[in-house]
Every structure is written in C-alpha cells, then in structure tokens.
Amino acid sequence: MNKKKIITFLALIGVTLCAIAGCNFSSPTIEQGNTPTKASVPNVNQENIQLTVSAAASLKEALGEITPLFSKAKSNVAIRNNFGSSGELQQQIINGAPVDVFISAAAKQMDELQKKDLIIADTRRDLLSNRLVLIVPADKGDAKELKDLINANIKRIAIGDPRSVPVGQYAQQALTKLELFKDLQSKFVLGNNVRQVLQFVESGNAQAGIVYATDARTSTKVKVVQVIDARLHAPIVYPIAVLHKSSNQPSAKSYLEFLSSEPAKNIFEKYGFSTL
C-alpha cells in the first residue's frame, strides 16, 4: 500500500472514530462586515416606539399621571398626549393627523370616525363616564341651579361650543329639556373646549358655566352649585379606539389594555371619573 493510500485509510478511520465519539463538525458563526449572522445576534431591546394619543381636554390630569406608569411598564414605548376638544381632535384625524389612539368625550365624534372607517372597530369601547355640573366663581353665588340662569342679574354664561365641543352639546341638551336654551343664547360665552369654559368662570368673565364634574374638581376658583340630572342629557361616555393609520397598532392596543388595568382605574377614579 503506497503512502497516499495509507494516509487516506488513516483519515477514514479517524473520521469514523470521531463520529462514534460525537465530535462536532459545525462551522463557527462568521460575521460579514459589521452584520452578524443570525446565530451571533445578541438579545437586544425592541425598537423604541412613540404613540400619539389624542384625548379630550378633560383627561389632561388623569392621563398626565397614567402616562409615566405605562412608560415604566413598557420602557420602549413613549406616549405623546395631544389634548383638545373632541370635535377638534376628530377633524385633525379626518385631515390626516398621525394619531395612534383617540379618546373622545362623547360617542358622536367616535361614531363619525367609525363611519369613515378611520378606527379599528373591534378596539372601540367605552372607557369612562362623567357628570355635568353647574359652576359659579368661588366667591360669588348668582346662580344655584340651571333655572336661575334666566335671571336678569346673570349676564354671561360659559358653555362649550355645541357645534364641536361635547360638554357644550350636553349643556345644550339639558337646557333644551328645561326649555331654557333659546332664551339664554344671548348670554352664552362659547369655549373651544371644557378647560376654556372653566377659565371663563375662574376669571369672572362668566357668572356661571357648565362643565364636567372632573374639571370643576381641578380648580379652587370655582364651586359646584348643582350636579345636573343625568336624565336631561345623553350619557356622558368616553369611547376609545385605535386608528387604522397607526403604524404601531400592537403597542396602541397594549396601551388600551393598560388603561383598563387597576392602577389606571384608580387614577381615573381619583380624578372623579367612573370607570366602565
């Protein structure tokens, strides 16, 4: 047997023995340039995500407290809150604003977006409810109930603009039921959102105003003189939904779930909302 045959024979014996012993002939991971192969990719955090949440102005304090809790639970997700009147926020969405989650202070605005197929219908649900109240400046008491608003000594009454602001729409419904709305129109000072209505009364630019109970609680400059009978207006609910155009739908849905968690519910209730 020549030398070449002897070497080949010995190599075959070596391979056979190594196979029996369980040797590993796998090739090591090779990195090409700066891009590692799949086998060598280390565990890394998920890509950072920002969610834009357009929410009714009355939610400002509650969501301001909830947002850090969510960010702590989901460290890669940052929340950008955009507060305003629900009607204004609705129009922003219709006009193409990049919004991931919408929280309205009334069903009407969410209904309009759903008709236009702008929300993911199966993510929609009613999150919260609220109450309507009559307020006056803390150091004055020109009105004690809605029927007093007709009195001649009351010159200015602040309500949300019924054309676009849910709190104004609820106020219009209540005053209409009491047959007061038409007679009071010349006295109305219209706010662009519920917080502006509150400011009109705080500053004395209005002698009375109709706001949500939760907003009245944020100010020491006004006092509640009447909790308005809920039978006088449509139920005050806050629907929430994820937008179809959201580029971060899984994270947006996770945010919706978090708002129904016990920590979030406790904060909403702390600010006077009822959770649903």
Rank of each mutant, 00 (worst) to 15 (best):
F268Y: 13
S75D: 09
L63V: 08
C18H: 10
R195F: 07
S27I: 11
C23A: 13
D215M: 15
I236D: 04
Y212F: 15
E112N: 14
L175E: 02
I13W: 00
Q173H: 04
K74M: 04
L146Y: 05
G33I: 01
I30Y: 15
L51K: 03
N151E: 14
C18A: 15
A107H: 09
D229E: 09
L232G: 12
A55K: 05
N48T: 10
S186Y: 04
P166I: 15
P166N: 15
S54I: 06
S261P: 00
P28Y: 07
T67G: 04
T8E: 08
N76I: 00
S246P: 06
N2G: 12
A152V: 11
A230D: 02
K270Y: 05
K38H: 01
N43K: 11
T123Q: 02
K147V: 11
S254E: 01
V197F: 14
V136N: 06
G33L: 06
S86W: 03
N24Q: 09
G33D: 02
Y212C: 12
S104L: 13
C18W: 05
S203P: 06
S27E: 15
I66V: 05
V189M: 14
A73Y: 08
V237H: 00
Q46N: 04
L184Y: 07
V242K: 01
A206T: 00
S203K: 09
V165T: 14
L128F: 14
D139W: 13
L59G: 10
I30S: 14
L10K: 00
Q114D: 14
I79K: 06
A73N: 08
G168S: 14
G96H: 12
Q196L: 00
K177V: 01
G141P: 08
A241L: 07
S104V: 09
N76S: 01
K270R: 12
H233M: 03
Q185C: 07
L180S: 02
I49S: 09
S85C: 08
V224G: 05
F181T: 10
L180M: 04
S129F: 07
I120R: 09
V237P: 00
L134V: 11
S26F: 05
L17S: 03
V189D: 13
K223G: 14
L276W: 09
D122A: 12
I7P: 03
N95H: 11
T123I: 11
F258C: 08
F188R: 11
E31K: 00
T16I: 13
I49H: 05
T218L: 14
Y170P: 00
S246M: 05
T218C: 06
T275N: 02
E112S: 11
G87T: 05
D122E: 06
R125H: 05
E88Q: 12
F83T: 10
P239C: 09
E88I: 09
D111T: 04
S246I: 05
A241M: 11
V189R: 06
Y212V: 02
R231N: 06
R131N: 13
V15M: 12
D122L: 08
V242P: 10
V101G: 04
D117T: 04
S71C: 10
K60P: 02
G64I: 12
F25V: 14
E65S: 06
L51V: 07
T16M: 11
A206C: 07
R163Y: 15
P36T: 00
